[in-house]
Design a protein around this nucleic acid. Structure first.
Lengths: 252, 252
DNA sequence: ATGCCTAAATTGGTCAGGCCAGTTGACCAG
DNA sequence: CTGGTCAACTGGCCTGACCAATTTAGGCAT
């Protein structure tokens, strides 16, 4: 490795160091951190740098900054590190497999405790989805509402949140770019049909059927996705190297 | 509750405003934002405030800050916003129910594709756990390693991440306070035994057994938890008191 | 003209010092 | 003991400056 320079931004280093102190238990949960001015002195950096590092930790949910009072440790683990230059970005297929495993179980569970209100929730999402197959954002929102709606039937806020988060993982630029090449009214209509099958199984209280329908839905999603890969790779050849557009040649 | 007043900090308001501009498409993906100095002037705030707001957006993964060059929009939607003032923390029982549904499915899946290396991973976590029943942080880390290890057997990074995140949800002060009153060498030893049962089922390729063992483990966790409820807090704060699925007849 | 190299302009990164506003706890009057 | 006041922290925000990385433009030799 050629990186002995370690030109990482200073406030990130400070954030890492404080994060480490929290993880190691040196700073217990609930404990108050030293004042910003003291931290700056101890770490031999300026107060703005300490402030920036603390804001990072606050956004990550590790600490709670209360003005006039102090900074308090909330938890030890950075649950979701949404750093921009981290995440090797799990592939789309990996994501769909994970969704298959998790959402099948949720659908099976939902079938066991379906209420009329819950089914109405799914129906509402279905109508919105079928009526908006021509508008990408509308149909995407309805798609999301359907999947989180199934979790809502179980009546568990944590499940709703996890379902939503795992759904939103497709909102990466890479995923979006691929999706834009195969998503269309046709594919969305197929998705609506599959959704309806799931809904019917849940409404009938058929756990195994709901599980199977959900698995079929996500499997077909994967198939639609992989089919677009073939033409994608053939037509995408020339677009890949737009990194250095030859400085002088862009001019007339 | 009275209105919390909530005088939001300025850099948060600035972050919200920029986030809105990105979400509305006013700032397209890939586009460069105005320089920090210009943003400060346009928004009538100081440059440090703009900087703090931009760091928030960077941690959220919305923008990419490249020093000497500028700030660029990475994506529109904040996939997982791990804000510190998140929704009112779902209750412990809700969390355990969600884990039961999700991790049972993962355990079942893992039993179908267990490798010797995967089992070794679980064994390693088990030895660490049984050897550290007297140290809370050690045993907790090993506990986490075991559960994410099951997801690792499936070989899906997304599953590993979700499992870890859902595990970390217990790291809230409220949860920790409760846990400190009933967690002890005895309860941890029981947990180790339950873990071992799960490990054996997975190693044997017994999907149904792994699922049942995982469900038993989380059910017993809930029981250990609920027993400590009576003496501590008046059950007022119990949200999501829903029991675990408790379907003894698992249809396959 | 062409291509490379250097210097200047631009932009983020960091620092110093200061003032304001909210929080907290000690202290004093009742 | 109760209630209110005040002073010492502590975070929030600002001004202004300098440094380092990057980009861009200009000059020089080919």
């Amino acid at each position: 490795m050629f990186s002995p320079v370690e030109s990482r931004r200073l406030y990130r280093q400070v954030a890492d160091q404080i994060r480490l102190m929290i993880a190691s238990g040196e700073l217990a949960v609930g404990q108050r951190l030293p004042a910003e001015r003291d931290l700056a002195e101890q770490l031999s950096v300026s107060r703005p740098t300490v402030r920036e590092a603390l804001i990072v930790l606050e956004v990550e949910g590790l600490v709670n900054i209360r003005m006039g009072s102090g900074i308090y440790v909330v938890r030890q683990h950075a649950a979701t590190v949404a750093g921009s230059e981290r995440e090797p970005v799990e592939g789309p297929f990996e994501l769909l497999q994970a969704r298959a495993i998790i959402e099948c179980a949720i659908a099976e569970e939902a079938a066991g405790c379906a209420t009329t209100e819950g089914i109405a929730l799914l129906d509402e999402a279905l109508t919105r989805m079928s009526g908006g197959v021509n508008d990408a954002s509308t149909v995407l929102a309805a798609d999301r509402a359907f999947h989180t709606g199934i979790a809502a039937i179980v009546g568990n806020a944590t499940l709703i949140r996890v379902t939503g988060e795992i759904f939103d993982m497709r909102m990466t630029p890479y995923f979006a770019k691929l999706a834009s090449h195969f998503e269309g009214p046709g594919t969305w209509r197929s998705a609506v049909d599959e959704h309806r099958t799931i809904r019917d199984a849940i409404a009938a209280g058929d756990g195994a059927g709901a599980k199977a329908a959900m698995r079929a839905h996500l499997t077909l999603s994967q198939k639609r996705f992989s089919e677009s890969f073939g033409e994608e790779l053939s037509g995408e050849e020339q677009r890949g190297r737009s990194k250095l557009p030859a400085k002088g040649t862009t001019k007339t």
